[in-house]
Design a protein around this nucleic acid. Structure first.
Lengths: 205, 205
DNA sequence: TGTTAATTACACAGATCGGTGTAATCAAGC
DNA sequence: GCTTGATTACACCGATCTGTGTAATTAACA
C-alpha cells in the first residue's frame, strides 16, 4: 500500500492538523497552512482527505483517546484525574477542551462534530461511573455527572484565566463529593491549604 | 446628538451583533450579515464601529451584565443561580458562555477579549464569595471558586449535550459543598430524586 | 430656508478561503 | 526497463471577508 518513505502521510497530516487546529483554532487555520507546515502540496492533502470537514472530523476522532486502564484504587484514579488535569493546564500547549472548542467554533448545528463531542463527554462520565460502582456509592450515575462538571468547569476556567490551580480547586470539591457519598478519601489526596489565589503563570495577564 | 429616528443606532447594531455573534459564532458572522439583518448599509455600521474587532469587544462588554441584587437569603441566591441556569439551558437561544466561546474562537492571544472574559468570570466568583462571607463559611474564597467550576462545567456540558439537567446536577453538588462547609441547606433546595438521565429536549440529538 | 450630520447605494480593493485541473516528477515493484 | 501510483508545482476558480471611497439623499434644527 504505502509507497511513501515517511511512515504514513495521512498520520503526518493529522498530527499537524491536530496541533494547528487545537492551538490556533479550526476556523483560523486553513488547509494551505496545514500543508505548508508539513512541507507538502495542498493537492497531497486533498488526496488523503476529501474536504476540510473530513479533516476536522478525523482530527476530533483522533483526539478521542481512551483513558488508560489502571490497577490503582478507584479513589486514587478519580482524584488523580485532577492531578493530570493540573499538569495539563500548566503545560504550554493547553488550550481548553478540543471538543468543547470545536462545538463553540463550528456551532451546535454541525451534527458530526457534536456527535463526537457528546461521545467523548459520555465516555469520561462512564469511566467515572464504573470506578464509582466499585466504591458502592449510593448514586454512581449522578455523582459521575457531577465529577464531569468539575472537570469541564476547571478546563473552561483555565482556558479563560490560565490558572492551573483551578484543577486543584476541582480536586478538593471532588474529594468532598466523594466523602459525602461515604467514600474513604485519603487525607493527603486533597491537599487542603493552598489559598489558591494567583497561581497564574507569569506569562499571562 | 442623535438625529436618527430609532432611539439609538449604535444600540440597534449591538443588539443584532449580539444575537448573531452568540448564536452563530463570531467568526461565522460577517459585518455584512449584521448590517443586512438590521437593514442598514455596511457604511453606517462602520460609522459607529471602526472595525469588527471593536464591535466584538463592544458585544462582549454589553454581555457583561451584573447579577441583580437580591434580598433573599444567601443560600437561596446561590442555589437559585443553578435554577436560573437550568431555565437558560432549556430556552432555545442558549449556546454556552459567550466569553468562553469567544476565547475558544478567537484564541487566547487576543488580549482584549480575554481580559473581558476574565473580568466576567471573576465577577461571578466575587459574587459567590460575598454571599459566602455572609454565611461564615471557613474558606469563602475557595468555595466560591468551586461553585464557579460547577457553573462553567454545567454550561460546557449543556453546550455539548444540550441537556438542561446538567444544571440540576450542579445544584446538587453545590448543595453538598455548602452543607460540608456548615451551611444549613433547605431540604427542598436540591430536589434529590430525578435520575437525571435523558432529560434532553426532543429537538436535539 | 439653509445648514449640518447621518445615512444611503454602490463600486471596489486586497486578502484569504476551500477546492480543482493538469501535467510533470519521483520512487517502488514486477 | 517498464508500469503504477503517489507526490509535486502551479495556476486558477468562485466565494467570502474586512474595510474604504464617493457622491447622493435624507431629516432634524436654527
Amino acid at each position: 500500500m504505502s509507497r511513501s518513505e515517511k511512515p504514513d502521510m495521512k498520520e503526518r497530516i493529522l498530527e499537524t492538523a491536530d496541533r494547528l487546529f487545537y492551538l490556533r483554532g479550526i476556523r483560523a487555520v486553513g488547509v494551505d497552512t496545514v500543508a505548508a507546515e508539513i512541507g507538502i502540496s495542498k493537492r497531497t492533502l486533498y488526496n488523503h482527505f476529501p474536504s476540510k470537514d473530513a479533516l476536522i472530523r478525523a482530527y476530533l476522532e483522533r483526539r478521542f483517546t481512551r483513558v488508560p486502564a489502571s490497577d490503582k484504587p478507584p479513589v486514587e484514579q478519580i482524584l488523580g484525574t485532577f492531578d493530570r488535569l493540573e499538569r495539563g493546564f500548566a503545560s504550554k500547549g493547553f488550550r481548553g477542551c478540543p471538543f468543547v472548542n470545536a462545538v463553540a467554533e463550528l456551532g451546535t448545528e454541525d451534527r458530526a462534530v457534536r456527535k463526537i463531542a457528546i461521545a467523548f463527554k459520555e465516555s469520561r462520565r462512564v469511566w467515572f461511573r464504573d470506578l464509582l460502582l466499585q466504591l458502592d456509592v449510593p448514586d454512581p450515575e449522578g455523582l459521575a455527572t457531577q465529577l464531569t462538571l468539575l472537570v469541564d468547569g476547571s478546563i473552561a476556567q483555565d482556558l479563560v484565566r490560565d490558572d492551573p490551580s483551578m484543577a486543584r480547586a476541582a480536586k478538593q470539591a471532588a474529594a468532598v463529593l466523594l466523602a459525602n457519598a461515604g467514600v474513604e478519601v485519603g487525607g493527603d489526596a486533597a491537599e487542603k491549604p493552598q489559598p489558591a489565589t494567583d497561581r497564574r503563570r507569569p506569562a499571562s495577564s
